[in-house]
């Protein structure tokens, strides 16, 4: 097992966008129980070294499969399709409009006195788009429309980033 192992195989799961998250967590705990360095604290040094490497791969695989965005990226990377990350710009005009709107809303919030509820609104809008895009990706991926799926990932990236920003704003308001 190393960083090139198939993450789905590590957890004995079928290669698919749809993942049973509670099963994934359960398998993750099983694998860590087997290979976590604590299990080898008492063993020869080289087994300890190997255990650290294995546990790191298991952690990496788990975090990659757990996130809807990272999982989508990983599936395409298995097909040797990698996006250019942020450079990937969506050409969907409707979505562009929506993005601009949400960003403006977010920018205005700092001055508003009902900042928290406004933030909540932005978060809900972004969240529902994010979930809808996951369904779109699943469809495209299962139909092997990988280039279109790549564009969907770019859109997902936008909403995932927006959600992080909303959280940071909440953070700042709290302090």
């Amino acid at each position: 097992m190393d960083s090139t192992s198939n993450y789905f195989e590590i957890f004995g799961l079928p290669v698919s966008y749809q993942v049973d998250l509670s099963l994934l967590s359960e398998r993750y705990r099983d694998m860590q129980r087997e290979f976590h360095p604590d299990r080898y604290a008492n063993k020869p040094a080289q087994e300890q070294r190997i255990a650290v490497q294995y546990a790191a791969v298991i952690n990496q695989a788990f975090s990659q499969l757990q996130s809807p965005l990272l999982r989508a990226q990983y599936l395409l990377s298995l097909k040797n399709i990698e996006g250019q990350g942020d450079a990937q710009i969506t050409r969907d005009p409707l979505l562009l409009m929506q993005q601009i709107e949400l960003r403006e809303k977010l920018a205005d919030i700092a001055q508003a006195n009902n900042a928290f509820s406004l933030l909540e609104e932005v978060a809900e809008a972004a969240e529902s788009e994010y979930i809808a895009l996951q369904k779109v990706f699943d469809q495209q991926y299962s139909e092997s429309k990988f280039q279109e799926a790549l564009e969907t990932i770019a859109k997902m990236q936008f909403f995932s980033k927006l959600l992080v920003e909303v959280e940071q704003r909440e953070h700042e308001l709290d302090d």
């Binding site: 087997e34 020869p44 080289q46």
Partner: peptide, 22 residues
């Protein structure tokens, strides 16, 4: 001297863990 043996043992236990899953 036992490094290779240790690596094989670890791999064998992975196989076991994976076999359990399937």
């Amino acid at each position: 001297t036992s490094e290779e043996f240790a690596a094989r043992r670890m791999n064998a236990s992975i196989q076991k863990a994976l076999a359990g899953h399937s």
